[in-house]
Structures are given as structure tokens and as C-alpha cells.
Nucleic acid binder design. Structure first.
Length: 641
RNA sequence: GGGCCCUUAGCUCAACUGGCAGAGCAACUGACUCUUAAUCAGUAGGUUGAAGGUUCGAUUCCUUCACGGCUCACCA
């Protein structure tokens, strides 16, 4: 609420003196100026059903009505008493809501008759509904877009013609995409050579462009990934269908039946022999040239973004393709897809602040999970040696271009595997995901080109951080990179804030994140994470302070984190204990005795890995912000207004 | 929470050093039966985010606030 249009509408409603408008009988031709939305492609394909119906003889207005009437009752009534529904509306002026004239001093001054009709029970119901939604009198309701009045008037015109305004069903013979595919290969003469019945289609879509010529018009329909032009002619349509066509607005949904042909400019087009009204858009489409540009509106009203911006639709198609490729890959590797609790009594598996909630019946507090990790490993204990889950995690932290409070992670575990195996499979997984979206092309991410090709670089945390420090003019010896005081000194010299826990491991990781992470553009496995920052990974037998763990970076983003799972229950209990002892402000660690008990039943040597699905989607769709790959990202709630 | 930036018609944006607030698109009225950002003629649409200050005069300069963005911090 409180979006710009509403605010402006409020001002206008209060003080603007609308220009007097001629009253017209329903169905009278409206303006003939053309309107249009930038041509684009739609998104979802429509289910193909009854595609043959039209080709089996349901041509013409009759058939169209039948389809529009949702079957039936409405259409049958219509046939029984043509124009019957019209009577109730005939003679009424177009929709104006009662009391509007009070706000129109100029019109009144000019002596123009103030509109004061009720518009029928349906109108009244709509008004009551709006009354419920808002404390404002309807005519100054800020929720009423300035264009909505006109659109409601046209809706009334359509209803006044006896046409069902909100039919239930539409039996298309083709999706727009399918119709284009079926006839797109034929040129004009080629189409003419086919009998009309055989090139007749029944298609539906949203009107995204109207170019009107008084007695004829071109409509551009959009539906799913398809788009198709429709030619409307007065000498072809029934009088009523033509009247409906004159009352259409951009954004409305219609269906048409007629033969395909090619225009003089060679565009594949349906000649509308009949036209069915399917649904009204009371609010206008996003702006036609620039699309929807306002970031905030794009996120808050994603449907408008999808409607107006082909690029947005493409991003989310790519994301879907990527996720299904990941799923196919895991299935192909013999992993079992599982679902583990989102509501957990303890938020474990990652060091992050959880969201807290309450279960009434049980009388307990629960947390939204921060990671599925410990549950998935319980499943390995239970005898599912390969499991994975693609699902949401919730972390009660700040929002940024790389963080959304809920994000999607693919997490998988494989028995008899270690960190190195996990790197190998992660590499193949990420390449498979990239291939599904990019089809072999390198990923363009900002100014960089990222090549998801075997083998990904491998580098140790010590090496890469040491090199970055050296470049910053703060060279440290290997020993110093493992020791807290020199690492803390490096922070001071580089004017970096110290992490709350000043262990050597945290300090090293802090320097890595500050100096090195962003520069890992090509896919790179970083290995050798200190034990202090890896409480769930197994320590290396050779280097006691170092774990068998890796993180994968690309485009400067962390996209995966995997390790040899710590399966010694005593060691795990000790690590949890250390964490609790060191508990810092904000860090909310807990001893998960239930998990320890599971480990005591014996977890085989297991490798695990989590992949940030949103982050990978960012890389593969060249999206600089995580919000661009999440359909409905979290935003600060709108205030005031 | 800190820093920087933005806010002008429904949308996208102009408006010189402080001097009558504009355009395109959308809307509305009219013309037009093959258009492709169709075209043509006309109409309407603004408390320039809010409040205060400086000034003869504020969209413009100053202060505060609000909304939004970016960024930093937080985020094993």
C-alpha cells in the first residue's frame, strides 16, 4: 500500500476538477487512438487441452460463446435470450460512481449533468468491497488508480452487451507458441492455399498492444512464451463482438477464433472471426518502452516485472532449468531426495541467528532451521547412504546483495566419501547446472567471464590469504598465518575490524574474506580451513589444526561449502562444548545431544556439501543481486504514506 | 546502526547561476479497414516526498524528517 499511484490519486481525487466527459451509451465506439506495450514474450505455457476441439467444427461466434461461457450455463442462457442480459443495462450511462459529481465543481459549473447512477448490484458490491478495504469514501480511495475508473466503465460496457465478463474456462486449440510453430513456416500464399478450416485456431492471451483504425484493429496477444497478432475487422465480426473489441484495454485477456494469414508486412496473424472476452485488467500494464524500472516495485510486485520485462522472465526460467538440472544430476548419481524439518527445536548446523517461533499445542519454542545438515547426517546413520535436499534455510541476519533471510540450498551427503570426493562431485554438479543454463557458453557476470570447466582451481586458505596480504604490503610468514597476534596486527595495519573471537582461525578467515574472496572470479576451491571455524568437519590426520574442508568460490561469491563429516561423537561433543564455552554475543550455539546420540550409533565416513542455489543462479543469469534471482525477496516493509 | 545517493504528471525523464514546472509514453475526445513505438487533431493530468528556514521570489540554497537505493558493519 501507499505506492506512488495511490498517493497521486489521493491528491487528484481531492482537488482535481476532472474534465467533463460526454456520456455514451454502452457499446458505442470508444476512442481510436492506439495503445501498445513493447512486444515481448510470455512465460508459462498453457496446459494443452481440447486443442482439437476447434478443428472439429466449433468455429464461429457460437463456438466462441460456448467456450467463453465456461460451459455453458451463461452461454446457453445467452443463446436462449440474446440480448437479455443487455436489457438491464441499456439506457444506463456508463459507470460512474455515485457522488462523483460532488468532486467535480468545474463540470457542475458548466451545467453538465452530473452522473448519478448506481450501475447495478454488482457495482454496488464492488463499492462495498472497496469500502471494506479502505476507510476512504470510494471516490477518493487512494487505492483507485487514475485509470481504473475508465477501465471499470468499459467493463460495464462489456457486461452491458450481455457478454460474460469473467468466464470460467477457455478451450484453446493452440497456445500462442504452438500456433506460431504450427503455421510459422508458411508464407502468405502457402497459408492461402490451405482451406480456412484447416488453418483456423482458437487462441487466448493478454492484450499487450492495440493498434486501432476505427473499423479494424490489430491486437497483440501474449501468453506464456508465445505472442501472436490478431486482426479484428468490423466486416468479419458480429456487431457485438466488434463492440466488445472497442471496449478492450491493454492488459485484458481475450480469446479469438479464426484462420491464420499473413499481413502485407508478412506478419503471421489470426483473423478474428469471433472474439471472446476472458478477463478485465482494471489496472494498467507497466510502461511500454522502459518496462518497469523501479527496483522496489519490481521486487514488491514481481508479477508486473515479469509482465513487462522479458529479461526477468528469462532469469527465472534459467533458474528453474538450473534447479532441475541439479536435481537430475543428484538423482543420476544415486542420491535420494529427502525433506527434513524446517521447524527445529534447536537451530543447528550453521552459526547463524535463527528465527524463533512458537508451537502452541506443544507449548515449546521452535526455530526455523539455519541448515538441514544434522538431520541429513542422521539419515546417513539410518541407512540412506546418499541423500540430498533442495530447500530453504532461514537466517536472521541483515539483507544485502548477497544475502536474503531465506535462501535455497542444495545439501547432499554421501557415505564412504571424503572432502576430495565432495570437490569432485561438486565440480561436476556445478558444471552440469551451468551447462543447463548456458549451453556451453561462458557465464558473463558483470565485467567478468566465468568459465565453468574442469578442472576448477584449487588453492589453500593459507596460500591465497598470504598472497593477498603480500599484495597489500603486509607479508606474513607461514607460521604467522597460523598465529593470532600477527594476524590481529595485520588487521590493525589494514584498518580492518577484528572479529569478536580472536582465535587464529577466525582471524585468518576474516582476512581471507576481506582481501581474497572477492577476487576469486574463476571457480576456485579453497581448502585447509582451520578447526576453529569448522566445528562439523573432520580434522586432517596430517595437520591437526586444519580440517578436511573446502569452499567453492566463483565471481567473488561463496557458492559451496563441503567437508569430510566429523563422525567421532566424542570429538563432536567436545567441539560443541568449545563453541558453547566461547559463546559470543549474538552467537547462539547449542549442544545437540540428539545429534550426538545419532553419531554414537555410527556414522560411516561421509562427505557432505551445501551449494547456494541462489548464488549459483546469480552467476548463471548475470544478476548482481540475490534479489534478482528470488521471485519475492524480502524487503523492508513500506512505512508511512 | 554508519556513509553516500535518490524522490518533479499514471510511467520514463527534463527544467541554465534562484525568475511563469515541460516532453515522450499512458489516459480521455474525434478521424482512420494491413498496423509494427501506427498516424493525425484536440483534452485533461502537478501542494516538484513532508515540515521548517533564507529570499522580493525556492523544483533549485540551508536544516530536519520520511520513503527508497547503493555501500559498510553484522553474517564459523
Amino acid at each position: 500500500m501507499g505506492r506512488e499511484p495511490g498517493v497521486a490519486a489521493r491528491h487528484r481525487g481531492r482537488r482535481a476538477a476532472p474534465h467533463p466527459r460526454q456520456r455514451r451509451a454502452p457499446g458505442v465506439r470508444r476512442d481510436a487512438r492506439e495503445r501498445r506495450l513493447g512486444a515481448d514474450r510470455g512465460d508459462r505455457p498453457l496446459p494443452r487441452r481440447d486443442h482439437q476441439a476447434v478443428l472439429e467444427g466449433e468455429h464461429g461466434p457460437r463456438g466462441a460463446e460456448r467456450a467463453a461461457g465456461g460451459g455453458c450455463r451463461a452461454a446457453d442462457r445467452e443463446r436462449a435470450a440474446p440480448g437479455g442480459a443487455e436489457r438491464g443495462h441499456r439506457g444506463r450511462p456508463p459507470l460512474r460512481r455515485r457522488g462523483l459529481h460532488l468532486l467535480r465543481p468545474r463540470g457542475a459549473r458548466r451545467g453538465r449533468e452530473a452522473p448519478r447512477q448506481d450501475g447495478g448490484g454488482r457495482r454496488a458490491a464492488g463499492r462495498r468491497l472497496r469500502g471494506l478495504m479502505s476507510d476512504n469514501p470510494p471516490d477518493r480511495d487512494p487505492a483507485m488508480h487514475r485509470d481504473e475508473r475508465d477501465r471499470r466503465r468499459k467493463l460495464a460496457e462489456i457486461e452491458g452487451l450481455g457478454v460474460p465478463a469473467w468466464p470460467s474456462r477457455y478451450a484453446a486449440s493452440h497456445t500462442l507458441e504452438a500456433a506460431t510453430e504450427a503455421f510459422g513456416d508458411l508464407d502468405g500464399p502457402g497459408l492461402e492455399a490451405i482451406p480456412e478450416e484447416e488453418r483456423t485456431v482458437r487462441v487466448g492471451g493478454r492484450i499487450v498492444a492495440i493498434r486501432s483504425f476505427g473499423k479494424a484493429a490489430f491486437l497483440r496477444l501474449s501468453e506464456g512464451p508465445g505472442t501472436l497478432q490478431v486482426h479484428v475487422r468490423r466486416d468479419v465480426l458480429t456487431e457485438r463482438d466488434f463492440a466488445v473489441s472497442k471496449a478492450l484495454d491493454l492488459g485484458d485477456w481475450v480469446g479469438v477464433t479464426g484462420p491464420m494469414f499473413r499481413t502485407r508486412t508478412d506478419e503471421l496473424t489470426v483473423r478474428a472471426d469471433s472474439l471472446v472476452f476472458l478477463a478485465k485488467a482494471l489496472l494498467p500494464l507497466p510502461e511500454k518502452w522502459h518496462g518497469l524500472a523501479d527496483r522496489d516495485t519490481r521486487y514488491r510486485q514481481r508479477y508486473l516485472d515479469l509482465l513487462g520485462n522479458a529479461r526477468t522472465r528469462e532469469v527465472f526460467r534459467s533458474r528453474a532449468a538450473m534447479v532441475s538440472a541439479m536435481r537430475r544430476f543428484m538423482d543420476g548419481e544415486g542420491f535420494l531426495e529427502v525433506e527434513t524439518p524446517m521447524l527445529q527445536p534447536l537451530a543447528t548446523g550453521a552459526a547463524a541467528r535463527p528465527f524463533q517461533t512458537r508451537h502452541r499445542a506443544l507449548g515449546i519454542d521452535l526455530y526455523l532451521r539455519v541448515a538441514p545438515e544434522l538431520y541429513l547426517k542422521r539419515l546417513v546413520v539410518g541407512g540412506f547412504p546418499r541423500v540430498y535436499e533442495i530447500n530453504r534455510n532461514f537466517r536472521n541476519e541483515g539483507l544485502s546483495t548477497r544475502h536474503n533471510p531465506e535462501f535455497t540450498m542444495l545439501e547432499f551427503y554421501r557415505a564412504f566419501s571424503d572432502c576430495a570426493d565432495m570437490m569432485e562431485i561438486t565440480e561436476r554438479l556445478v558444471i552440469a547446472a551451468a551447462r543447463a543454463v548456458l549451453r556451453g557458453e561462458p557465464a558473463v557476470f558483470g565485467d567478468d567471464e566465468i568459465r565453468f570447466e574442469k578442472p576448477f582451481a584449487r588453492v589453500s586458505l593459507l596460500e591465497v590469504t598470504g598472497a593477498a596480504l603480500k599484495e597489500q604490503g603486509v607479508p606474513l610468514e607461514d607460521d604467522d598465518l597460523r598465529s593470532a597476534p600477527p594476524l590481529a596486527e595485520a588487521h590493525r595495519r589494514l584498518d580492518l575490524p577484528l572479529p569478536p573471537d580472536e582465535s587464529a582461525g577466525k582471524l585468518l578467515l576474516s582476512l581471507f574474506e576481506a582481501l581474497a574472496e572477492r577476487r576469486l572470479v574463476q571457480p576456485t576451491f579453497v581448502t585447509g580451513y582451520p578447526v576453529e571455524v569448522s566445528p562439523l568437519s573432520k580434522a586432517s590426520p596430517e595437520e591437526p589444526g586444519i580440517t578436511e574442508r573446502f569452499e567453492l568460490f566463483a565471481g567473488g561469491l561463496e557458492i559451496a561449502n563441503g567437508f569430510s563429516e566429523l563422525n567421532d561423537p566424542d570429538e563432536q561433543a567436545a567441539r560443541f562444548g568449545e563453541q558453547m564455552a566461547k559463546r559470543q554475543a549474538g552467537e547462539d550455539h547449542a549442544m545437540d545431544w540428539d545429534y550426538i546420540e545419532a553419531l554414537r550409533h555410527g556414522l560411516p565416513p561421509t562427505g557432505g556439501c551445501g551449494v547456494g542455489v541462489d548464488r549459483v543462479a546469480m552467476l548463471l543469469t548475470n544478476s548482481p543481486a540475490i534479489r534478482d534471482v528470488i521471485l519475492f525477496p524480502h524487503l523492508r516493509p513500506r512505512e508511512g504514506r
